[in-house]
């Protein structure tokens, strides 16, 4: 392998790099990790790889003198830490020489085509359970007692149901509608259970909607020197927080109209 790598193998490396980057960006990995993974895959194959990743797409250039350059646009982004961890492990074992480029490519194809965490009945049931548990746990955190536990469980189920319905809308609108529905339903619960603290329910209900991933990624990207991605993610988290605040504001003022 001391000759120049031929075009076909460069194209193979470029495809694997691009697939890895697509999975990572679509699952919510930070940009610095995307570029590092791509460089690692290239290093494992013995070719130089340069890449520019943003939160919305990636350009990969493989090979030194006459590079193969490809780009991909990522339009749909979800949060799926399992896939991030899987690609991370894949690039590690590729670097250690435990698997071949072909195996890695097949595995990445499978990851690209596998549905998100919200599909499939079993994982769907798990998501419902998780959101209701999260809401009741945070209800305890913000000062709720045993009285708020059951309403918080139900509120979590409802928030998850709405989350599924609005998933195809633009993210800003989805968060707004979800926050609006949570605050409206928490307000309505006062008519059924007069002694429940509505404020605690609302706060606990919207904590799972907070832009924690965007904020963490913004911090990590800025510290890694990824200025564009860091600022973009910071703007994303501010926008999401504003949508959340708007939804809760509207919901609370609607409930105030109808005491």
């Amino acid at each position: 392998m001391d000759t120049l790598p031929d075009r076909a193998s460069l194209r193979d490396v470029a495809r694997v790099c691009l697939d890895a980057a697509k999975v990572l960006i679509a699952s919510g990995a930070e940009t610095a990790r995307v570029e590092e993974t791509v460089t690692r895959i290239g290093a494992a194959c013995g070719v130089e790889v340069e890449s520019i990743a943003t939160p919305t797409g990636i350009t990969v250039s493989v090979g030194g003198n006459r590079p193969v350059t490809r780009l991909a646009r990522v339009r749909v982004r979800t949060i799926d830490m399992s896939k991030v961890a899987a690609v991370n492990g894949l690039s590690r074992s590729l670097e250690a020489g435990e698997i071949s480029l072909r195996t890695a490519g097949n595995e990445l194809c499978r990851l690209l085509q596998s549905p998100g965490p919200n599909l499939g009945t079993r994982s769907r049931r798990r998501m419902f359970l998780a959101q209701s548990l999260a809401t009741s746990g945070f209800a305890l955190l913000v000062g709720g007692g045993p009285r708020e536990l059951v309403p918080a469980l139900l509120l979590g189920l409802l928030a998850r149901l709405i989350d599924e319905r609005v998933a195809s809308l633009p993210p800003f609108l989805a968060v707004f509608l979800n926050a609006l529905a949570v605050s409206l339903c928490a307000g309505l619960s006062r008519h059924v259970l007069p002694e429940v603290n509505v404020d605690i329910l609302i706060v606990a209900g919207v904590i799972p909607l907070l832009p924690g991933l965007a904020l963490t990624n913004a911090a990590r990207d800025l510290m890694a020197g990824e200025l564009i991605a860091g600022v973009a993610r910071g703007a994303d988290s501010i926008l999401t927080a504003a949508a959340l605040a708007g939804g809760v504001c509207l919901g609370v003022s609607l409930m105030a109209l109808h005491p």
């Binding site: 949060i79 799926d80 830490m81 399992s82 896939k83 965490p117 798990r126 998501m127 359970l129 998780a130 959101q131 548990l133 999260a134 809401t135 009741s136 746990g137 945070f138 209800a139 305890l140 955190l141 709720g144 904590i207 799972p208 991933l213």
Partner: peptide, 15 residues
């Protein structure tokens, strides 16, 4: 206890 349950459950939400 709320923190433990809430954090673990949100971790499930993030898959």
């Amino acid at each position: 206890l709320g923190v433990l349950v809430g954090t673990a459950a949100s971790a499930v939400l993030f898959n």
